[in-house]
């Protein structure tokens, strides 16, 4: 599912001198070779390499909290942003960034989205975390209680009476929600 952006940025690297790569190992053991400027968008990686003097180019950094699937999503985003930065250092093409981001999350299910939020949180990529949590908010906006429960995977621990009372008390809050 690699996008045109991700693939073009890797092909472009062949034309310049050999780019430095950083190896990142996900929870399920897959090793990703990531171009340095892309990997450095992951704050946890940046500080790992900044703080440890004994790491070399051969060091494989383990990321036990990130699955391979989430890593693909994270890298797609970071590579696209690196490509934007490289193309137009003087002025970020905002509408293009927005168009990319919209297309990028459109393809993600709720479950994939949450997995990426956890990964972005762990890897400490604040820009991506802000963006993804904003998307999550959009998805539950004006939705029914049942939808929100399912979205977060929260168990309903109210007794039926309690819930009925609560809904009666806050009746107006339950008027006019969107279809799930």
């Amino acid at each position: 599912m690699s996008s045109s952006i991700a693939s073009s940025s890797s092909s472009s690297s062949s034309s310049s001198k050999k780019e430095k790569k950083i190896s990142l190992k996900t929870s399920d053991g897959e090793v990703f070779e990531v171009e340095e400027p892309v990997a450095m968008q992951l704050e946890i990686v940046r500080s790992f390499f900044a703080d440890n003097e004994d790491v070399t180019e051969q060091t494989v950094m383990p990321l036990p909290n990130v699955s391979t699937a989430a890593m693909h999503g994270i890298l797609e985003y970071c590579r696209a942003h690196e490509e934007f930065r490289r193309r137009m250092p003087e002025a970020a093409p905002e509408e293009e960034v927005r168009a990319f981001e919209a297309g990028y999350v459109d393809r993600k299910s709720n479950e994939e989205l949450k997995e990426m939020i956890l990964a972005a949180n762990y890897l400490n990529i604040s820009k991506l975390l802000d963006f993804l949590t904003g998307v999550a908010a959009k998805r539950i906006e004006n939705k029914s209680v049942e939808y929100v429960r399912a979205f977060f995977g929260v168990e309903n621990d109210f007794t039926p009476e309690e819930e009925a009372n609560l809904r009666r008390e806050y009746e107006w809050a339950f008027e006019g929600v969107d279809e799930d």
Binding site: T133, G134, A137, I140, V145, L166, A173
Partner: peptide
């Protein structure tokens, strides 16, 4: 990020 009405409605999600 949400409107206050959404946060209020979420009070029926669970006790917590």
């Amino acid at each position: 990020f949400l409107e206050t009405i959404d946060v209020t409605r979420a009070s029926a999600v669970s006790r917590k």
